[in-house]
Amino acid sequence: MYVIVVGAGKVGWNLARELLGKDHEVTLIESERRRYLIVEQELEHAVQYGDATELWVLERAGIQRADLVIAVTGDDEDNMLICQVAKEKYLCQRIVARVNNPRNLQHFKLLGIRPAVSATDLILRLIEHEVPQYGLVQLLALEGERLEIIELEVADGAPAAGKRVDDVELPEGSLIISVLRGGAGFVPKSDTVIQAGDEVLLILDPGLESSITPQFTRNGASAG
């Protein structure tokens, strides 16, 4: 997937690094010259210098073929407008905007900028949990409803492997909603047996990941 990240602050830089580590193609855009030079030492050609609120800068970065545009600058107006043109002018399918001042969330909504993520740590937390590539966006999409969806692979020897859905020890506020097996997904019933190698999707109240992941990792070890 090709991802454009705007703003090479702590969030943007780490996000770009993580996405590159997952073999995504990434262009990070930074408008402050000194910051750009620092980041460029590590990311090299993956970072470009320019003001991404200008259309030609986005076009130079190849926005026409971007699968995802993430605006995480420290300026809410910039994030709003970058996402607005990405979505409405360049018809980018997926956008994610960072909200610096929670009071501005209403303006993001007014302009149709969804998802708008107000907590810096939410993005980083998702990366830490190694959420699968396409899960990233779906996860954030439910942020407004205070629900999360995570995708986990069932490891060999995990407590959940070989168990009926009913018998998997999950905390209150979580539910297995889909099982992906052999390239096909289905909605499990209470007597469906979870197998090692399955990918399971769970819906959960925010904050429950750490008590769920041990059921799906080997020896019940924490994935974090």
């Binding site: 609120t53 300026d75 107006e77 709003m80 407008l81 302009l111």
Partner: peptide
């Protein structure tokens, strides 16, 4: 004095 501020507040005035 900022294009970005102007574009955002103009849309707030118009849409909201």
């Amino acid at each position: 004095n900022g294009d970005n501020t102007n574009l955002v507040i103009a849309q707030i005035a118009q849409r909201r």
